[in-house]
Simulated scan of single mutants.
Amino acid sequence: MQCGTAVGIARRGSAGLDADHQSTPAVRISLCRPEQGKKKNMELFNKSGAMISSVFVMVGALIACQAKEGAVPPAPVIEAAAQRLSAHGGAAAERRLREWADQGSIVAKRELGMLYQNKTPRRGEAMRLFEEAARAGDAESAFQLAEMYHRAAENSGRQPDKAWPLYAQAAEHRHPKAALRLASLAKDGSEEAARWLAAAGLVK
């Protein structure tokens, strides 16, 4: 510590007092200043705290602005939210996915369909979501909807007529599972089966 000494002079006495009592003795006060390094560290700490607070305020404002404008996040964010919902559940996460789907997010519709397709009461909603996303060109949604039609046809003993064009749509968008399914549905040894096997990457 670097210390210094200050001298404080008391007020002069009022008029009429004896000369010996016109002023009080000087008072010495010892004043100590923090070391220069400590002072600088404190200044840096205060500046860092102010900067962090500003960042938090800015992030909060951006989130509020996004929520106000109803902005839909990019696909990786939606897929990550869907994965957390599938693993841990949560009404808030599901509600957020539904909001994004209602705003037209194809990825949110697909992810909700994936979530609902194995829940009997919600299979109809899953098919609707897959259909809307497939119409917008989502290959995975087309494949998942085809799979639902295919399973329904197998359970009823009918041909999967509704599934075929959806498999074809997905396969044309380089979906290997869809191409493989088309190859299995085609006549064994036919040129069509060979073509879909090639599309699936199983033959050249």
Rank of each mutant, 00 (worst) to 15 (best):
L31V: 09
R33T: 05
R33E: 07
E35V: 03
E35S: 11
E35N: 14
Q36T: 09
Q36F: 09
Q36D: 09
G37K: 11
K38F: 10
K38I: 08
K38E: 15
K38M: 11
K38L: 12
K39G: 04
K40Y: 08
K40P: 01
K40H: 05
K40W: 09
N41P: 00
M42T: 03
M42K: 03
L44D: 09
F45S: 13
N46H: 01
N46P: 00
S48Y: 03
S48N: 06
S48E: 10
G49D: 12
G49R: 05
M51S: 15
I52Y: 06
V55D: 02
V55H: 04
V55F: 07
V55S: 02
F56R: 06
F56H: 05
V57L: 13
V57T: 11
M58D: 08
M58R: 08
M58W: 10
V59Y: 02
G60E: 02
A61C: 05
A61D: 01
L62H: 03
I63W: 07
I63Q: 05
C65D: 12
C65A: 12
Q66T: 13
Q66S: 10
Q66A: 10
A67S: 12
A67P: 06
K68G: 10
E69K: 15
E69N: 15
G70A: 01
A71Y: 02
V72N: 00
V72L: 02
P73E: 02
P74M: 13
A75G: 07
A75D: 15
P76H: 06
P76N: 07
V77F: 12
V77I: 13
I78Q: 00
A80S: 11
A80I: 06
R84G: 11
R84K: 15
R84A: 15
A87Y: 09
H88A: 04
H88P: 00
G89P: 01
G89H: 08
G89R: 01
G89N: 09
A91T: 13
A91W: 07
A91S: 11
